[in-house]
Design a protein around this nucleic acid. Structure first.
Lengths: 226, 226
DNA sequence: CCATACTGACTGATCGATCAGTCAGTATCG
DNA sequence: CGATACTGACTGATCGATCAGTCAGTATGG
């Protein structure tokens, strides 16, 4: 099948437009305050537009939130899919470590742009992924389930000892580990007196890859335990 | 030093009291709507008390949130500490699997009470743990850092090959995996067409223990990689 | 000339918090 | 004993602030 996957709703967003300014502002404000805690007023102020313009373009606060989510999710998942396809298309055997890196690296590289403290869309992604709220669950399903299936399929293919069930658990748990990285709470820095710096992306990512691959491999050959 | 650790602020909460009713209601409403999304009015209504009574007892919405958090966190971490101390006090060598279970089981057993859909305090814990909000960060630090240090120390003791730095990463990543379990989004069920049921606590917990122990062990002997 | 982009002024609803005041119980004192 | 003083628990009413959303009208550019 083709390559375009998750857009078709977004009719392109001119980079310098007021719409892009609104989405940028929304990303920062929603990241800091969450959906309920954010106000359309503050987003408008930060974007330098009238509040009514937001309602003119997006109609509701919920639509704005979804548009902002869709924009970054498209970026992230296109990059993820490209990396994964490249790995799977190659002639040599695929290392689990490379798949895991394809899963995580685009998320942090896209997610940590904007927002002065480096935690822009990442923070939103964390709360959406962990929320039981109906809106957030729908967004996770629409924008992240397709890529999840791709990675689960890849896990099954490169690790034939992994049952489908354990591959799904492996994926879910690994995403959970990734959330630690995305949340950027500074807790690891505090708990380690500075040794584990969660703003040092490369260091954290290398540790995560080791841990996650170890976890996934531990699930292989697990089918007779049930 | 003594044994009492995290209370001393709470002057006991009579089980059948109105205060307990308010805390129960707060737990349900905050779990569903988050801090900003919840309203003191709704909590009062669910508790069957006047809204003003909540302000009489707790002064502010923030104080109410903290009191509710403190109550359950005390339950959870007392149970965690008891299980861990019991393991470490025994004569035989401590298995990593048992430490991991001591970390997670109290969390789900306490956290999944109340709230019709089984996701009561768990949901609050997830959002607090992953939030970059100052209030949530303070709560995590006050109520969860002490027990975190206990478990990190235990990891270092039973797995001498683990550096302190990697033990902190191991702890952080493992908590991240646990969050997957606490969030109860139903996503694993959806992604697996029913095979991975995140409301089947025992099944999920046994998978998590395998994955987390595999991840932690993969970090052992990692010091020369940097 | 007309659609698209955009705005200031506004609305009704709802928010957390505060208020004066009620009421049952309890200690104090003659 | 009974009157007085005082307490904590609790409430209905209401405060000002803020919320998302609406609308009539203006500017602009093809």
């Amino acid at each position: 099948m083709g390559e375009a996957v998750a857009e078709a709703v977004e009719p392109e967003i001119p980079a310098g437009s007021r719409i892009a300014a609104i989405l940028d502002a929304a990303e920062i404000v929603f990241a800091r305050s969450g959906f309920a805690g954010a106000s359309v007023r503050e987003i408008a102020e930060r974007a330098g537009v009238a509040q009514a313009l937001i309602h003119y373009h997006f109609k509701t606060k919920e639509n704005l939130f979804e548009a902002m989510t869709a924009r970054r999710s498209g970026e992230i998942n296109n990059a993820r899919a490209a990396k994964l396809d490249e790995l799977l298309a190659g002639p040599e055997t695929v290392k689990l470590e490379h798949v895991v890196e394809a899963l995580f690296r685009p998320t942090i590289e896209v997610g940590h742009s904007l927002a002065e403290d480096g935690g822009g869309f990442s923070r939103i992604l964390v709360s959406v992924a962990n929320s039981s709220d109906e809106r957030d669950k729908r967004l996770a399903e629409v924008y992240y389930d397709p890529i999840a299936h791709k990675f689960i399929d890849a896990l099954c293919r490169i690790e034939p000892g992994l049952t489908r069930k354990d591959a799904v658990w492996a994926y879910m748990f690994s995403i959970g580990v990734g959330m630690t990285m995305m949340a950027r709470t500074g807790r690891s820095t505090r708990l380690s007196a500075g040794e584990c710096d969660d703003s040092d992306i490369e260091d954290m990512l290398s540790e995560i890859v080791i841990y996650v691959c170890g976890g996934i491999r531990a699930l292989i050959g697990n089918q007779e335990r049930n």
